[in-house]
Design a binder for these strands. Structure first.
Lengths: 215, 215
DNA sequence: TAGATTGTTAATCGATTAACAATC
DNA sequence: TAGATTGTTAATCGATTAACAATC
């Protein structure tokens, strides 16, 4: 799909899910054809940027016509790797861990939590939906045996690096980290961290500097 | 604090919380002085970028010496608006809403959830920690009466815009949105959206394209 | 065919990095 | 003072936008 051996910039990659989401909405509205100009109006990127972005991955459009919504939606899904499913584990059955486990949208998108892991004995053995909470000591073995692709870290920042190490040693391919810390992982392991407090502090900054910005 | 009337770029603003976090860690380790070069090693930005970033807000360093960690930490806290507290409400007492309500770190940083709002009658009247779950119909009145600064939206994407509208009409200053949709708010209201699925899909992309990237 | 719109190259803009004089 | 390191200007790099020939 990707053209030649050009490196795609992270800026482009992070826009792809947004394209896909808006294309989904168009499909819901039974709109099957869209030009970069029209898409620009609803998504807020320039038409030029949209065409540049998409052309990193191939020529999905047709001159004089625009883009076929279904086709583009499915192509972006494939590019993002949403055309097949992944096995995941959630480590930490606290607030965020439970929220992720309960959030069925991720499962619908192909990210299936197969088990949760905890150190708190009161939680071990319980289930969240059909997902069992297991003893954290079993994490490594489980990842190896069940062919887990993605590890989701929902522990405190103090425990997160240890958990990541176990995951890496057990052959995990990617880590989705919610602990408020920057983890160290080898180059072959993909890491994506959600820094909730950084997001909140950014909001706080903008709140404080709003008036100045309006000057 | 901010120099003249230069506009600070979002790229810089989004790095500020990370500076603050690493400076906190240094304080925990009783390190009271740091040069941009040393900070560069632990935080992963270039020393040049660190000096550029900080100089947007003033000259916090001293030639030949470096930066005083306490001073810089507190200065960045002030810049981010973390030197005073905010009243918040959480709308939606589902998975994410409950997780946010239970996550005491935000409260410690000055973002105090004063109430939650729900449409599900089974949840109305319950408490999460000391935070009462109230009828969503009372949201607007509550925001006005209690001087709420920040509204946290944890509803479905279908309800999110309506909730945002009520918040805006009631004089909210900022919205922290967890619903997977892009909200429309007037210019004077600050909006920060956490797109969890976009983060997950980015991870998925990187997973899929890992091997190619290693070529 | 004429009109529309892409794909792609070139121009611009902005952010990052390098360099170095100022100065502690 | 000499050494270290900032603050800041200049150079580079990368991303976005504009322009337009290609073509459906």
């Amino acid at each position: 799909m990707q053209k030649g051996n050009t490196r795609i910039s992270m800026a482009v990659i992070r826009r792809l899910p947004k394209y896909r989401r808006y294309l989904s909405e168009l499909l819901d509205k039974d709109i099957h054809r869209i030009s970069s100009k029209e898409l620009s109006k609803i998504i807020g990127f320039t038409a030029s940027q949209i065409r540049q972005d998409l052309n990193n991955f191939g020529g999905f459009g047709q001159q004089g016509y625009g883009y076929n919504v279904e086709e583009l939606h499915s192509a972006i899904g494939k590019i993002l790797g949403l055309d097949h499913s992944y096995n995941t584990v959630i480590v930490g059955a606290g607030n965020i861990g439970q929220a992720i486990a309960n959030y069925t949208n991720f499962e619908k998108a192909g990210f299936k939590p197969t088990a949760m892991f905890e150190i708190n004995p009161k939680l071990i053995g319980l289930k969240i939906r059909d997902i069992e909470i297991m003893d954290a000591d079993l994490l490594g073995t489980y990842i190896k045996e069940k062919n887990i692709n993605i590890g989701i870290i929902c522990t405190s920042k103090e425990k997160a690096q240890d958990v990541a190490n176990v995951m890496v040693e057990s052959g995990i391919q990617g880590i989705w980290n919610f602990a408020p810390t920057d983890l160290q992982v080898p180059e072959h392991v993909v890491l994506e961290t959600v820094h909730l407090s950084e997001s909140l502090y950014t909001l706080s900054y903008l709140l404080k500097h709003k008036r100045e910005e309006e000057d």
